[in-house]
């Protein structure tokens, strides 16, 4: 196990150049984009040139770009990502507050998507080109074709407006429910830790619609990959061996075929997760979800440099971590693969 940790450490160390590149690229990109934060954050539309210049100096924007970059990198090295002009808070604080919301939503959506996609992929692969297979294909195509803001609005229309089953689709928890004390920032975990099942229920019901919306969108890649991998595995020799030696169908499909078919699914799962985390801005907007993506979008529209740069760096770091986890999972799932 120490060897594994050491290798994981090396992997993280090896990803530092990529992270550095991401930081520099985002920094320069923000400087190239039109819009002047000093004008944006001046007191009003009739602020004088002198006032704007003062803000510019206060923000350090009057200095040459290389110098700004070096100072920014120095700040990152000390664990500071700057201050958000929009919220007035340090970016680190904002991200720490908002990341659990995004992670809770994304993880729930991923689990939901997996729990639907795996069975769908399996039944489709067991009877290729049957009615079931075509049904799964149709569902996947629909899921990937309909934009998340459309499916989100449709779900709200149906379950909140028409049927009244879902709660008010704003935020992470019903405003009248009591917020559990913050431990991890994940409401489901925090309320469970506090033993507050009322709050747990409130948070869970709030989570259902946005998570379903996101899950629908990523159902297709997961289910299609499961189907393709299962189809390939089901024709392999060792499946025939299992059948020839009288193993039950259940054992052959779930233990022999599925575990082998999971390997490519794990790979695609890592990619899907990273994509969801960044791309769920539409879902966060539709459901007024206080996540990092909507935070970054607001900052971008306001030419607020620091939050956007901080968000991109966070996403890059998460991407590195997710890939590491995928590789570790791969090593666990397949004895032929080691981290090297």
């Amino acid at each position: 196990m120490p060897a594994l940790l050491r290798r994981a450490g090396w992997r993280l160390f090896g990803s530092l150049p990529a992270l550095f590149g991401v930081v520099v690229f985002t920094f320069l990109l923000m400087r190239v984009l039109p819009g002047d934060p000093a004008i944006f954050f001046a007191s009003g539309p009739n602020a004088g040139e002198a006032e704007i210049q003062a803000i510019r100096e206060q923000m350090g924007l009057d200095r040459p770009i290389p110098e700004q970059l070096v100072r920014y990198l120095g700040d990152i090295g000390r664990g500071r990502l700057g201050r958000s002009m929009g919220t007035g808070q340090p970016v680190v604080t904002d991200l720490v507050n908002r990341l659990p919301a995004s992670l809770e939503l994304t993880l729930t959506a991923l689990l939901l998507a997996l729990s639907c996609a795996l069975p769908l992929g399996i039944v489709a692969a067991l009877a290729p080109n049957s009615a079931v297979d075509h049904g799964v294909r149709l569902l996947c195509t629909l899921g990937v074709c309909v934009p998340t803001f459309v499916s989100g609005l449709l779900l709200i229309y149906a379950f909140y407006y028409l049927l009244g089953l879902a709660p008010d689709p704003t935020g992470r928890i019903d405003i009248f429910a009591s917020q559990p004390p913050r431990v991890t920032g994940f409401l489901l975990i925090d309320s469970a830790l506090a033993g507050d099942w009322e709050a747990w229920r409130a948070a869970a019901t709030q989570l259902v619609l946005p998570a379903t919306t996101m899950a629908l969108f990523v159902l297709a890649p997961l289910a299609r990959m499961t189907r393709a991998a299962m189809l390939a595995v089901l024709t392999s020799d060792f499946i025939r061996t299992g059948d020839a030696l009288g193993l039950s169908r259940r054992r052959v499909v779930l233990v022999y075929a599925l575990r082998n078919a999971l390997l490519p699914v794990i790979t695609i799962m890592g990619i899907v997760f990273s994509t969801m985390l960044g791309a769920n801005v539409l879902v966060e907007k539709v459901f007024s979800w206080p996540g990092v993506a909507s935070y970054a979008l607001d900052a971008l529209l306001a030419s607020d440099y620091a939050p956007v740069q901080g968000f991109v760096l966070l996403m890059a770091a998460i991407f590195v971590l997710v890939n590491l986890v995928v590789d570790l999972l791969y090593g666990l799932a397949d004895p032929r693969v080691s981290m090297e």
């Binding site: 020799d237 020839a244 009288g246 082998n260």
Partner: peptide, 23 residues
């Protein structure tokens, strides 16, 4: 299914492929 393995069995060419690689 009850016959296979118990009353009649089969072994194959390419034994490495005939075994589950991750079990």
């Amino acid at each position: 299914q009850p016959l296979r393995g118990a009353a009649m069995s089969m072994i194959f060419q390419n034994p490495r492929a005939a075994l589950n690689p991750i079990r």
